[in-house]
Design a protein around this nucleic acid. Structure first.
Lengths: 152, 152
DNA sequence: GTTTCTGCAAAATATTTGCATACGC
DNA sequence: GCGTATGCAAATATTTTGCAGAAAC
């Protein structure tokens, strides 16, 4: 919890450094992005922010996300037609995505070991970042599917 | 090269098994997807197919891709606003994507080792597939950047 | 006071859908 | 000949843009 709070403060500090203004709308988006283990879509952010700021515009959500993305402070996850955002930390880490319910779990980044270095060495490419996603069925959805097949 | 040809035949066989019709339009899309080491966008496929079939509709490209995706025969790569398709093989493998020129290199899937198994064991998630992408600068673009900085 | 950010609305883009027709099997 | 796939066009969804006014610093 204090972790999350720190992340929020970190983001605020980064924006200040950059000379960006900390408008209430921006703060609201930051709060949502750093609250709990969430990986919201644009619409989810928009809806939540509107609870607090009914006048809030979608364009502002997009522009805030674009800013954070450009700063490297959020990871954009996209698969199929979905785009979700993760501001958990500035360093990329693997994700486990449930194809059924859409739940997303963050995994530790040390899973990869030195794969990136090895690839850089072998290919000559200069690795900037990476994205590593597992598409899966979460335990709850597995149970649900199992119960359904037994039941019917 | 014969590899690519085999992949085309494999896709044709899969479609036949499934009772799908092998229309000229579909064949054209398959040929493009299995030609060389390409990772085309919908538009690229559309443009190339139209060289051969000027009447070809975009909707047909979309529907063919949707079919192949559903069959698990193409991987969809999406990052930022881009979506590209890879039909290199039915098993997922890592990609190395140049952020500058958009070139995509396929990597061997054994880079991962048994990470997927380990995650499945630790989390209880049932892994269906994965996507593993490195965003990088390719050697050519590195040189170009270097030359530019020396030159100017 | 200056400059950036916001809200609005329209525009641009990307993708999906419905339906009559064409054509692979 | 049957039934699926196609082409077209309209519908839908998503994201971007321009601009006047608001407000953070």
């Amino acid at each position: 919890m204090s972790n999350k709070h720190n992340r929020l403060e970190e983001l605020v500090a980064r924006l200040r450094e950059r000379g960006c203004r900390l408008t209430p709308q921006r703060m609201a988006v930051l709060k949502i992005l750093t609250a709990g283990n969430c990986h919201p879509s644009v619409q989810e952010i928009y809806c939540q922010v509107r609870d607090e700021f009914p006048m809030m515009s979608l364009a502002t959500v997009y522009s805030t996300l674009a800013l954070l993305k450009e700063m490297g402070e959020v990871q954009e996850l996209s698969w199929d037609g979905c785009r979700r955002y993760d501001a958990a930390s500035s360093s990329p880490h693997p994700h486990l995505i449930c194809l059924q319910c859409g739940e997303i779990v963050d995994l530790e980044s040390d899973l990869l070991g030195n794969v990136a270095d090895e690839i850089a060495r072998r290919t000559g490419y200069q690795i900037v970042s990476h994205r590593f996603e597992f598409f899966a069925i979460c335990p709850r959805c597995q149970e649900a599917a199992c119960a359904a097949s037994v039941g019917g």
